[in-house]
Each structure stands twice: as C-alpha cells, then as structure tokens.
Design a protein around this nucleic acid. Structure first.
Lengths: 305, 305
DNA sequence: GCCATTCTCTGACTCTAGTCAGAGAACGGC
DNA sequence: GCCGTTCTCTGACTAGAGTCAGAGAATGGC
C-alpha cells in the first residue's frame, strides 16, 4: 500500500471515529463555533487579541465580532480595548468562562478515555506510541521553512534558544559574544532561515559568505522537542539551496565535538571533514560540501560526491 | 503523558493539519454534503439503496431525499426504484458522477501526497507505519460487540468466513456438517456474539450449554485483517460475561492443534488444559476456565485462578 | 495636525445542514 | 384483501457558519 493510501485510509477511519472528539464541544448548550472560541481563548491565561483569534481560527472579522458579543452576553468572556493599542480588543475568559472551559476539557478527556478504554493495556500502549509518532511527524511535515529577517521576534527567540542550549551543553558554557546574527547576516550578505510551527520557532540556521563562492552554515538549531523528526536534514537542505541561490558553490561549517547527532547528520548529508578554517574557540570539527551537484528530482537523498 | 493526553494532542494536530483532507471535497463547486454523498455512492459500483446511504452517513431521510434530488438535477446520479422492493430506491453514479468522483479522489490523493512530501524517506516510512498501526487499533477499539440472532445476515457471513478459514487451515479440510450455528444456539439455549465494524462482521463466537452450570465456547473467529488488534481477547471476555449471564460457572472449549495463536490467547486468558470432553474429530486440545471470579474493575487483565 | 492604514463593528445577506410532521406507495403476514 | 409496517418524499421550518461592503475609532509616519 502506498504512503498516500495509508494516510487516506487513516483519515477515513479517523474522521469517522476520533473525529467525534470534536463533538465534545457540542452538547453544553453552546454552538460549535462559540465553544471553539472559548477553548481557544482559554489557551492563554491573560486572554488574546481579537486579531490573534482571527488568525488562529481563520475567522472573518465581522463573524468574530458577532461571536464575541454572543459570548459576552452569556457572561463567558470579557472584551475590552487593549491599553497598548486601543484599536485592538483583548478577549479574556470570565470566571464562568473558565468553568465552561473546564467542562469542555473534561468532556474531551472522557471521550478520549472512552476511545482507548476497550483496548487491552498492550494495545493501548501501542496505540499511544503510534499516535505520538504520527503527531511528531505530521507536525514536522507541516513545519513552515522560509528565509526571514533575522531581527523578527520569532527569529530572535530561536537564536536565544540556540545560545541557551549551547551554554547548557558545552562543558565550559557558551558566550555568544558581541556579534549578533542580524549583524552577521547584514554585514556579509547572508541569509537567515527559520522553521516555525503554529507561529513558534522550531528550528533555524544562518548562512554567511566566507568568500565569493564559499558560504558558511552557522548556528543550526533544532528545538529539543522536535528532534528525531528529520527537521535537521530538511533545514540543512533548505540552507544549501539558499546558499546556491546566493551564488555559493561550496558550503562549510564548524561544530563542537560534543554535538554528535549533528555531526552524524552532516555526514549523512554528504559533508566531509576538512582542516580548521577559522579560529572559533568552540569548534573542533570542520566540514565542507560541494553544491555543484543538483539535488535530484523529488529529492530526499543527497548524492554523495 | 497519559494515554488520553496523547490522543487529545494528536487530535488537535490532526484536525489542524490533515483535517484539511476533508476539504478536498470542497472546491469542485459541490457543497461538502453532496460531495460526500457522491464519494459514498461511488464506493459501490452498482450503487446503494437510499437506506444504506442513510445508515452509513447518518442522515435524515428528508434531508437525503433532497440531496439526492439535487445530485440528480446536476446529472451526477441516477435514482431508481429497487426492482426487488419498490419502496426502496437505488442510487448509482452516472458517467459524469464517476468523473466527478475521480476528480475528488485525485484531489484527496494530492493532498495526502503533499502531506508526506516534505518528509525524508525514512520519516515517511515511520509515519505510514504509525498511521497503519493507529488505524488498526482505532478501528479495533470502536468495534461493536453484541449478542445477535445467529440467523441475521452478518452473523451468517461471519460463520461462512469461519468455516472457509478452517477448511483452508486444516490439513484435511473441514466440513461443518449438518449442525448449523442457529440450530445449536436455539436447541441448547446458548448465544451468538458478533463483532462488527462499519456493519461488516470482523469477529464472532458462540456459547452453548453443556450442562446446567457449564457452557462451551464454540466457533470463535477473527477476521484475518483484524488479527493483532486484541480483538480475540475482547471477544473472549465478552463471551465469558455472556456465559455468566446465562448462569454458567465454568466454560470449556476445544480447538485444533494447528490454531496456535488461539491456544496462546486462551492460555493468557486463564484457560487450563483438560481431558477430552467430546468426540469432535477436529479438536485435539481442550480447555476450561472457572468464571466465579468477577472481572476486576476497568478490567483488562484476567486474574489467574 | 494631516492622512493613509489598521482594527473592529454593523447590517444585510447567502448557503448548508439538519429537524419534524405527515402523506403516500409498496410490502408481508395473515 | 386487509392492515400494520417500512421506506421515501414534501413542506415548512431553524440554526449556524460565513461573506461582503462600508462606517467609525485609533494609530503612526510625516
């Protein structure tokens, strides 16, 4: 059975059986749309702006305005202007809004429990393992990878996580020093690539020029919770393509000896060890890869030179 | 993370990302309901009765009548009385109905392909394996197990499959003989338990009385495609509960030596070998279990005596 | 302070799904 | 042939989701 057949078959099964979990939103006297809103507003303790709600749920502004009023009339939410920008409105759950959300939550929990309940313990463990794997991979597959301005908030957040992790992992800690990523990119005509999921950064990496035809991949980072989903390889491929677009024919990178998974990944992707090419005190391993071979069609495999 | 958390988290991921597969039904100028109907009618080359459609999709009869007429007006289906029972109406796709279905199908295929496309080959294989496992287990968890009249069509179908399989597996074939299940159940005050999924039989088994307090489990069968989903154990538990309701304190069963998985399952469920208690020529192994221990609360594990 | 832009709201719609009661045709057992 | 049952259809609804145009308030750059 082809991959797509499995996906489609699962989809069918799923919408018929677990899909009913969504209906947990029904039956509390609230139409589905309003219940979804309550649930979504409740994901943030301090409330959300109407704009944020609209982008999360993809609603029309008129529609949302009406829905919010309806919730307000039922005493479930407070809607008030955002003090920082009074065009915006901030929506927060009231006490009884929270109570309702708890009931929705309990309902959803019960339905999930009812789904796994008939299974034996062994089967249940298999199911949850399969679902967790599928969850990770589906999320990974739908990650959005693109070149961004390194000063935008999500990019800065990504870099902060990166530095924090290096500081944890390196035996003597890590100090990024004064050279910020933005400067690096701006000064050397490079690019910064960010992978996001649900708006939050999950992986990132930069490219800077070492010379006319030589690029350097810097600061590749993958969020802890996203390891093992092939995100690193995809990001690397994306960075290589970006480097090619920038006119490079070779890319280099350096890394710390302690980052063993990263080194294994570079090896799989066709990178070969070279001599030290800079004086980065945190790097002990240096790699290079020629970009002149086109990535093969549909390309997951990277041809080795 | 608890089992239900995994299910719920997955549910969230899923409805956000793969859920869009359903929307493949949109965008061909047909509202979702009608598209679903076209798809459903197209699952059977000769068409379906309106009744069948209603039970599959859970629609109101008035609603369905209107939807069918709308499809008829668009030239997508033919609706005509069932020659066998002219109260019923048979719905079949027209040529352009089939063409539309093909387009819906292609759309769904493309969306599925787009989902797996970003993954590396390795990740893709992991994903499809996880989804296939989840599919089997979710289906298994939502199987409907109940006591039925053994003469009803699904029950007869189950028994036919059972006999056909024995005939394939036994070295010398198998001949059910004149004693039909229905007779057996009726004559001895037993019961027939059927497990169905989507209306089709997936497992079954019978109980008959051997004496006032002794029941016998007969003809347990699990559909080939449903092996490995714990369905046998669940059916067995159900049969035991049924036997208890019939007043039995002990159940026996016999089986053929070649059915090794079944024997292993009986062992796990607490059955112990006993001496031959009948002259069934196809049986070489005989088991018994005392029912007086209550099944523990929430019970998946069967306590061993 | 002006003005284009951003954000929200209102009014006036459309579409789809779905419910309910009841009529009429066909069927099956007697 | 009668009569209760089964199956489908019609009419008359309701509710929810969503679209679109335009008004009005607040903001930020100049």
């Amino acid at each position: 059975m082809a991959d797509t057949d499995v996906v489609r078959r699962f989809n069918r099964t799923y919408t018929q059986r677990i899909g009913a979990l969504d209906e947990s939103f029904l039956g509390l006297g609230l139409p589905l749309g309003l219940a979804r809103l309550v649930f979504e507003v409740g994901t943030s303790p301090d409330g959300l702006t109407a704009l944020g709600l609209r982008s999360r749920l993809g609603l029309d502004s008129g529609h949302l305005a009406r829905q919010l009023r309806s919730l307000e009339e039922r005493g479930l939410v407070d809607v008030r202007p955002d003090p920082a920008d009074r065009r915006r409105r901030v929506v927060a759950l009231t006490r009884s809004g929270w109570a309702l959300r708890d009931r929705l939550d309990a309902r959803s929990e019960r339905l999930a429990a009812r789904l796994v309940e008939p299974l034996t313990e062994r089967q249940r463990a298999r199911l949850t393992e399969a679902l967790a794997t599928a969850d990770l991979l589906v999320r990974a597959a739908t990650v959005d990878i693109r070149t961004v301005d390194p000063t935008e908030p999500a990019a800065v957040e990504a870099m902060d996580s990166y530095f924090a992790e290096l500081d944890r992992r390196f035996p003597d800690g890590f100090d990024p020093g004064p050279a910020e990523v933005g400067d690096m990119v701006a000064a050397t005509g490079g690019a910064f690539v960010l992978a996001t999921s649900d708006g939050g950064p999950v992986a990132s990496g930069g490219i800077r020029s070492l010379g006319p035809e030589v690029g350097e991949i810097k600061r590749m980072w993958v969020h802890d919770e996203w390891r093992g989903a092939g995100l690193g390889s995809r990001l690397l491929r994306h960075l290589e393509a970006t480097a090619r677009d920038l006119g490079h024919r070779t890319v280099r990178l350096d890394t710390n000896r302690t980052l063993t998974e990263a080194i294994a990944m570079y090896d799989r992707a066709g990178y070969r060890p070279i001599e030290r090419y800079n004086d980065n005190p945190y790097a002990q391993a240096f790699f290079e890869k020629a970009l002149d071979c086109e990535v093969p069609e549909g390309g997951d495999k990277v041809r080795r030179p």
